[in-house]
Design a protein around this nucleic acid. Structure first.
Lengths: 245, 245
DNA sequence: CTTTTTGAATGGTTAAACCATTATTATGGT
DNA sequence: ACCATAATAATGGTTTAACCATTCAAAAAG
């Protein structure tokens, strides 16, 4: 953990003082004057630097914290630490939009379908022989779990395959999108406590066919199967939901 | 604008009091006890309701504001108004991730390409004859602007076509994704001050071919052309960027 | 009836103090 | 010397009470 950093902050003037302070600290973080892991000075010190009251400074820190730019810890040696910009905020905001009815679960499932298809397509184009080998190992592992009837282990591997394909696709935004969507739809999928042997075999076949298509350099085919794969989840989910009414 | 609403708030206890207050108000908004347009009581009143200090309450309000759940206005009749959950927060967060280097412009361009393709595909499947007619009108309008050499007007219509197709696709998440990505990439596209007559004709042809594919019920073809359409922007953008180095 | 003035309601800010949590340091027993 | 415990200090969390700044509406002036 790095020590405090001097960042040449300036005194404020605008309408909402705390906003001005937010802007200054955010700018320092985004232009790498402050880097992930750096600690901001203690509140009582920052207060003097900006020449504002502690209350106003704390409003600024709340905003930065909510933006995901800093993380605040208690006690001696605590304080505000600069964070890596991650997906938590995207995930949370999307979750808010779902809960507030702005988005439907169906929308998200359909979106996920397209995203996973595109990832499969890009991954097929960009996969190296080593990448394919990794996927083959995972799928072989999944085959073993399937023959053992180990549902939980199979689902873990299924997820690992999706994650690995995201890496191979080589586009961070697709990876984030897949993760955010998955995190927000997981609680609906989790109603699949009746994940039977037959379903497991269906899904295993999907994985095998996707990797085969990647080996054969058939991006369109890989995308098609990946979409179908997600589609199967979506259909079950929607059927369950309609039964719940 | 609705009046104040009674929402049965409870007194607090947790570690971070302001977080507990955030949770309670957020819950009231998400379960529709508080609806968009409703005003929260004034700070001095909320303060008493929760039995906390005004400073702590204001930290809560800052967080809710940053989440996009409320909007705060000054002066008599001002206060905290419940907001519709929109895309501003997604747009801002994505912007932060770009600026902090977590995402590259190339990633976003490629993502946009896939999104617009999927929208074109879905829109083709779901378009009614009336929808097609609207698109035809827009494209005809674009043709006129092209023949007049009216670049700005053409770009406005191009955007309107994309927006309309998003509506036809019927998936709010795809629409949001397209908007968020577009908002974050616009400043890079805006370097196209050299949008020539030839480019305009190229793009007009794309639009005409997309609508044709939709009429012919060819979702794959529509998606392919839409992707190509975006791809053309991306290539120019990347070429510009590399020249800038 | 229109314009101007005034006042009240509301968010924005300050100040100084105290509380709660945590890591470090000092203490004391073995 | 070592380990467990207690004291200490640094830091964020909270409270209180006051005052400032902005806005809208009602009262006053013309």
């Amino acid at each position: 953990m790095a020590l405090k950093v001097k960042a040449d902050f300036q005194k404020v003037k605008k309408n909402r003082i705390f906003q001005d302070v937010v802007d200054q600290i955010q700018e320092a973080i985004l232009n790498r004057t402050l880097r992930p892991g750096d600690m901001l000075p203690p509140e009582r010190e920052l207060r003097e630097t900006f020449n504002i009251s502690r209350g106003t400074l704390r409003e600024s820190l709340r905003v930065l914290e909510q933006k995901g730019l800093i993380e605040i810890r208690l006690g001696t040696g605590g304080g505000a630490m600069v964070k890596n910009a991650g997906t938590e905020q995207l995930t949370e905001t999307l979750g808010l939009m779902i809960r507030s009815g702005t988005l439907s679960v169906q929308d998200i499932g359909e979106f996920r379908q397209g995203i996973e298809g595109q990832i499969a397509r890009l991954a097929t184009r960009r996969a190296t022989p080593e990448d394919i080998a990794i996927l083959e190992d995972l799928v072989e592992n999944a085959r073993v779990k399937t023959s053992q009837g180990a549902v939980e282990a199979f689902l873990d591997i299924d997820q690992a395959v999706h994650k690995e394909m995201g890496r191979i696709a080589g586009n961070a935004l697709y990876q984030y999108a897949a993760q955010v969507v998955h995190d927000n739809i997981r609680k609906y999928y989790d109603n699949f406590l009746d994940f039977t042997q037959k379903r497991m075999e269906e899904n295993l076949l999907d994985l095998q066919r996707i990797v085969k298509a990647m080996q054969d350099q058939q991006p369109r085919e890989a995308a098609r199967i990946a979409e179908q794969h997600v589609s199967r989840f979506n259909e079950r989910m929607l059927k369950k939901e309609s039964l719940g009414h």
